[in-house]
Design a protein around this nucleic acid. Structure first.
Length: 469
DNA sequence: CTATGGCACGGATT
DNA sequence: AATCCGTGCCATAG
């Protein structure tokens, strides 16, 4: 049996293969750069903007149908719908995947943040106000957001809510700007206000943050444009402005971007390469999988150029032919890459359907090697395809595509659940017992490792926590 | 003595 | 070939 990777479909040169490989492993932004560069360097390439679905703005397929809206409303099939989706709302955000994958523990300096802020504002406060400020500052999470409310602090310190509000405002305007806000939205608004004092900011920026926060954080720019009744282009530029100048998590700008990947909530400014939704938001229906192309149209070889080459002068022909060759090679590579991505996602989404809909507990341990066998491509092909990609799940979380190949996530989340519901702190060996009853056989030492990955304290410390709080 | 974390080894995965 | 992961052994803290 040939391990032939693509020979079955098209003849392929080594150059073709190498380039396809490269394109495969690229995340959105790089891919965009690559395409832009090719487009600029080669006159034989052109980008055509095809017709889009009037209701959902998606690119229509070859048959002129919208891949999503054309689906029968009552389709029973749960087979995933996988398709490419060129987006003009792609905003590059470099390093997003690095920070997502990096499992670095929190910076130790985090503890110093409250003191750092207090020092800045202390001169403007009297003794009582300082106490209130200190109280506020001890209720910051690692992102610099406030975990308590003004009312609560007022009650605790026996001061007027308006007084506390004033102090909070002061904190928010200290460095890092926006620290001490209750929500990411609030933080952005404060930053915007401060920025406005020194430079011009787009007028709609405030409106976008106030009214379109959820769309903004999920990159649903087309939807947002519709909601606010402004062109998508405007939203794009505002989103870019916000991404470059504001930071929804004030503490991160200050202490670096180290973050746990898949934990709580929405990481606002990560750009997914793949978006998965349920059809009609109904979990019993098929999954809709969009593979994002970071371009606004479809790349093709310019047919006019082809014509022109035929009629060109004899001495110019070789050059033009070269361009033509390169262009069609590039287009082929891109198609090849997209084809591979489609096949991969169709497979993976099928296998991990339960995970996508119901959470980490249902992640099935799959290896890249298994998939490669089923798709009859080389292992390294899958490796590249999986590398450096981010997926947005129906619950709006963004995870690395590599998360779909985590061999122990299901056990870890089972473990997490056990510990959360335990009546009294269980030791690692107790946990081994319980897990094995539920069908997971792991060594005691391994439980300890999982605990530390999940950030669960050892049993004796959990006991101390119970007493302490 | 028990519960845990560190180190290091070997096999699987990429 | 390089890296990741589960595990066993051992030292240490409680």
């Amino acid at each position: 049996m040939f391990q032939g990777q693509f020979q079955s479909t098209r003849p392929m040169t080594t150059a073709h293969l190498a380039q396809t490989m490269n394109l495969l492993s690229m995340p959105g932004e790089e891919l965009r750069q690559e395409i832009d560069a090719a487009l600029a360097a080669n006159p034989a390439l052109e980008m055509i903007d095809e017709r889009r679905c009037p209701t959902c703005h998606r690119l229509l397929t070859d048959h002129g149908k919208c891949p999503v809206c054309s689906l029968p409303k009552n389709a029973e099939s749960t087979d995933p719908v996988v398709f490419l989706s060129p987006r003009d709302d792609f905003i590059p955000k470099k390093d997003y995947i690095d920070s997502a994958i990096d499992n670095e523990p929190y910076a130790p300096e985090v503890e110093e943040l409250p003191a750092y802020v207090l020092k800045q504002i202390a001169p403007d406060l009297d003794q009582g106000q300082r106490a209130a400020a200190a109280f506020l500052l001890t209720h910051l999470d690692e992102d610099g957001l406030l975990t308590t409310t003004v009312m609560e602090v007022a009650r605790y310190t026996h001061m007027l809510p308006s007084e506390i509000e004033k102090i909070k405002k002061l904190i928010q305007r200290a460095d890092p700007v926006g620290v001490g806000s209750n929500t990411t939205q609030e933080a952005l608004l404060v930053q915007l206000e401060v920025l406005r004092e020194t430079q011009n900011v787009p007028d709609i920026a405030e409106q976008v943050i106030r009214e379109g926060m959820s769309e903004l954080s999920h990159h649903q720019y087309s939807e947002l444009a519709h909601k606010l009744e402004v062109p998508v282009k405007v939203i794009n530029s505002v989103a870019k402005f916000i991404g470059e100048n504001l930071n929804p998590f004030p503490a991160r700008s200050h202490w670096g971007d180290v973050r746990q990947p898949v934990d709580e909530g929405t990481d606002v400014f990560h750009q997914p390469d793949i978006i998965i939704n349920c059809l009609n938001d109904d979990p019993s229906k098929a999954l809709v999988v969009e593979i994002i192309m970071p371009t606004s149209g479809t790349l093709q070889v310019n047919p006019l150029f082809k014509q022109a080459v035929k009629q060109a002068d004899e001495e110019k022909k070789p050059d033009l032919k070269g361009d033509l060759e390169k262009a069609s090679l590039f287009v082929k590579c891109l198609q090849q890459r997209n084809h591979t991505m489609e096949r991969l996602l169709e497979k993976v989404v099928n296998i991990q359907r339960d995970y996508i809909l119901n959470g980490e507990k249902y992640l099935r341990p799959v290896t890249r090697a298994q998939i490669s066998r089923e798709l009859e491509v080389h292992e390294s092909t899958i490796s590249r395809a999986v590398a450096n990609k981010a997926v947005q799940l129906p619950n709006k979380r963004i995870v690395p595509l590599a998360a779909f190949f985590d061999r122990s996530m299901n056990i870890r989340s089972e473990l997490k659940e056990i510990v959360e519901n335990e009546s009294s702190p269980l030791s690692d060996s107790d946990l081994v017992e319980i897990l094995s009853k539920r069908g997971y056989d792991v060594a005691r030492r391994t439980v300890a490792k999982y605990r530390s990955i999940e950030g669960i304290l050892p049993a004796h410390l959990r006991k101390a926590m119970l007493r302490g709080t």
